[in-house]
């Protein structure tokens, strides 16, 4: 486990607010020298950064239906279901979960009809024992954890 220090939290919180922030700007804002930021990231980033990405406004791209869908799948189909969902281009994120279900998939679709067709395909290919949908109406907060330097984190 990576032991986070105060400097690391400052660097992380900047990257969480804007992953494209130049190191010079980060240095000015945090008071940490550029060389230190560079070294900390070079040595430690692989330990805790999964990737730098950009979050999308899917509806502005023409994708008006988003849902978090939890699935319970028969044991025999779990592995193939997992592979299918990992490869499927409509699945933005996928998690293995517990508490009565096996997977949570965040699906992104142009229309609700596309989502319904996707679910029909999934149910025809795999033994889905149970499912539940949570249609996303509005994003209120996205990737907000560790965007602020909270002392309670230590």
């Amino acid at each position: 486990m990576f032991k986070m220090k105060e400097k690391d939290l400052k660097i992380i919180s900047h990257l969480r607010r804007d992953a494209r922030m130049p190191l010079t700007k980060m240095s000015k804002s945090s008071g940490i020298p550029v060389s230190t930021i560079f070294d900390r990231l070079k040595v430690n980033a692989e330990d805790f950064i999964v990737k730098h990405t950009c979050l999308l406004d899917f509806s502005k791209m023409g994708y008006h239906t988003r849902a978090n869908i939890v699935f319970k799948v028969s044991n025999e189909d779990k592995e193939s279901f997992r592979s299918f969902m990992i490869k499927h281009s409509s699945i933005n994120s996928l998690y293995k979960i517990n508490n009565g279900f096996d997977f949570m998939a965040e699906g992104v679709f142009k229309h609700i009809k596309d989502m319904e067709e996707f679910i029909e395909l999934v149910e025809s290919e795999f033994r889905v024992e149970d499912k539940k949908y949570y249609y996303i109406v509005d994003d209120l907060k996205r990737e907000g954890f560790l965007t602020k330097e909270e002392p309670s984190f230590f």
Partner: peptide, 25 residues
């Protein structure tokens, strides 16, 4: 910029000492 909400680094919270991730409805 019209479709990108923000650029963000995705973290492995577990390796930072936060091993519990829970989804609630």
């Amino acid at each position: 910029g019209r479709v990108v909400e923000k650029h963000v680094s995705l973290l492995d919270f577990q390796s930072l000492g936060f091993p519990l991730k829970v989804h609630f409805a």
